[in-house]
Amino acid sequence: MAKIVGGYATSHVPAIGVAIDQAKTEEPYWQPVFAGYEWSRKWIEEVKPDVVFVVYNDHATAFSLELIPTFALGCAAEYAPADEGWGARPVPTVHGHPELAWHIAQSVILDEFDITIVNDMEVDHGLTVPLSLAFGQPHAWPCAVIPLAVNVVQYPPPTGNRCLQFGKAIRKAIESFPHDMRVVVFGTGGMSHQLQAQRAGLINPEFDQRFLDLLVNDPDAAAAIPHVDYLRDAGSEGIELVMWLVMRGALGDDVKELHRHYHVPASNTAVGHLVLEPK
């Protein structure tokens, strides 16, 4: 049977992708950002997932205002990295796992999570930056990837509680797949940041650290944080953090925190990173 062997949460700041692509990771500005990912590079190399399930959001790339799915599950065989206005990132094509993805789609829909199924989609920095942080710059990604795009651009995103419960349904789906397979679930986005208007640049380390603590030890309390608290205290784009709750739900009730990293800034954003193991 398929098994969830870990959880990996990280910010997905586009400038981090640029720093990797342009070989700037050793520069003084970037070194402390990337230092916190060295441990988890080795960890994921040892864990050797067959599939990573990546919860991320599309930033007006594959989806525009024409179509705004709250949860969109990628069931395709492959996904091309997108041109987001600066040219596509020089990273490998992402290969999916249609068999497991379709299994998850059927399972969660019958569990009353009415998701959108996607068979053709480009993926933006929200998905590719976490892959680069986890796996570096290989010629091909070392495992299959199942993307789950969550709407966090059009207000309102799904509630924290809905994300946590959906994560639990994803766990049930993955662990009922009848083939031996190791899966790591990624939650991406955040942490505190605001990219827009006069309050841009907002960073709130107290909010972020409290969120990390709650996510690990009291996910129900993290899931109860109302949207207005994210918008106000973590910045208007900090609301991406609801996506970490999908990952947390997929790990089961109790987890062990293996690794934590927090750094300010990467461009406009506070960088947070967690590695969790189900107990």
């Binding site: 640049g201 907002l202 960073i203 106000r232 205290d233 800034p265 406009n268």
Partner: peptide, 14 residues
Amino acid sequence: MMLAGGRPIEGNRT
């Protein structure tokens, strides 16, 4: 400002 920790939440909440 970002290098110094960003815009603080105190004084920027409401």
